[in-house]
């Protein structure tokens, strides 16, 4: 459970930071976490975010979900973004996004 938490938070860091104006190189303090989050997001057996979403730098990306761009503008409230990843049903009960946190995916 704790492991999942850590994974999720680094995933979020990636999602948020990857699309903010700051480049990866400048964010040296976060780079390790970013790399970890990116690895999870791109890993087919873990986040597999690319199955449905566009993420800059990805390959073979799906078009099922919205592209993960301008996340800071789309989710000014960070908690809402966390909820979107852990259990998107709480943001929109008719979502088809899997509840990654709640179901321990």
């Amino acid at each position: 459970m704790k492991g999942t938490r850590i994974l999720l938070s680094s995933l979020l860091v990636t999602v948020i930071a990857a699309f903010s104006s700051i480049t990866l190189a400048q964010e040296s303090g976060l780079s390790a976490e970013l790399a970890q989050g990116k690895a999870i997001a791109f890993d087919r057996r873990k986040g597999n975010c690319l199955a449905c979403h566009y993420i800059q730098g990805g390959a073979l990306m799906g078009t099922t979900g919205p592209g993960l761009v301008a996340m800071k503008q789309r989710f000014p409230d960070r908690q809402r973004l966390i909820t979107q990843v852990t259990d998107a049903r709480l943001n929109n009960k008719n979502t088809i996004m899997p509840p990654f946190g709640a179901h321990g995916i």
């Binding site: 690319l50 199955a51 073979l60 990306m61 899997p98 509840p99 179901h103 995916i105």
Partner: peptide
């Protein structure tokens, strides 16, 4: 575990790309 109905993929979002 992924919480999908047949209808989710093959009705609601049919036609879009999964990978």
């Amino acid at each position: 575990q992924l919480n999908f109905a047949c209808a989710d993929c093959h009705l609601k979002i049919s036609g879009s790309l999964l990978r």
